Amino acid sequence: MDKPEFRCTTKKALDELATELNLKERIPNWDSMAGYSYTPGNPEDIQQYLDYYVILTNEDKKFTLMEMILDAIAEQPNQTEFVNYWDKVEPILIEDYLIHEFTIHYWKNMTVEFERSNIMTPLIQKIISQKRQRRN
């Protein structure tokens, strides 16, 4: 299995998104959590993140914002909302696969860390399989 090249969020992208999306006000404990093993997202703000993502051109910001989007999807209050947002995110992950390859592979291993892993893990694995088939 191919391992994606390691990638992590940059302080510059975090700081700029924090300002642009008012994250310090919207996410409790933003300063103590952002940029460590993942970047937290607020499930209530997911549509704002998606709307902002489509206007971004900076790949570091896209990378960071997608971490937040996936975290916000995983925290949706019910399966219907989860699927609604997943249907919006999946085409982005496919289109910008090279930007998000590390994050995609990170999330494919999330089997018990969050409540909806039984839904999300197979969806992530499907994206990886599709990309592998296209390479071959």
Rank of each mutant, 00 (worst) to 15 (best):
S32I: 10
Q47T: 15
K62P: 03
L98W: 11
L50W: 06
E81D: 15
R116P: 00
S117P: 05
L65R: 07
F114K: 04
I27L: 13
T80S: 14
V89M: 04
E44Q: 15
N136P: 07
Y49G: 02
P91C: 15
N22L: 12
E95W: 07
R116A: 00
I128R: 06
R26T: 06
F114R: 03
E115S: 02
N22T: 07
Y85D: 02
T111W: 06
N84M: 08
E115C: 01
T19M: 12
R132L: 15
E115Y: 02
E75C: 10
T19R: 13
R134M: 12
L23S: 02
I128H: 04
E113C: 04
G41I: 13
A72P: 04
D96R: 11
S37I: 10
Q133C: 03
H100P: 09
M120K: 00
Q125T: 05
W107T: 00
N109D: 09
Q133P: 01
E25A: 09
G41W: 04
Q76G: 10
S32L: 14
Q48Y: 08
I99G: 05
P28Y: 01
Y85E: 04
T80I: 14
K108A: 01
M68T: 09
G41Q: 09
M68V: 12
Y52A: 08
I104Y: 02
I73K: 03
Q133E: 05
P91T: 14
E101T: 01
K61A: 03
Y36W: 15
Y85F: 15
K108P: 01
M110Q: 14
L123Y: 09
Q130N: 14
E113H: 05
M110R: 15
N118D: 06
T111V: 12
K24E: 14
I94R: 14
T80V: 14
L21W: 08
E44V: 13
S117E: 01
T39N: 14
I124L: 05
D31I: 08
I99Q: 06
E81N: 15
M33G: 07
R132Q: 15
Y85I: 06
K131D: 02
S32H: 10
Y52C: 09
P43D: 00
D87V: 07
Q76P: 12
W30P: 13
F102A: 04
L93V: 04
I92T: 01
Y52F: 15
M110C: 12
T103V: 12
N118V: 05
A74I: 00
T80A: 15
I99P: 06
E59H: 11
I99F: 09
K24C: 09
I94P: 03
I104G: 01
A74C: 09
Y36G: 07
E115A: 00
N118F: 07
E115H: 03
L21T: 03
D51R: 11
T103G: 04
K61E: 02
P77V: 03
Q48A: 08
N109Y: 04
Q133A: 05
Q47W: 13
F82V: 10
P122I: 11
L93R: 06
V112Y: 12
D31T: 08
I27Y: 06
W30G: 11
L93F: 09
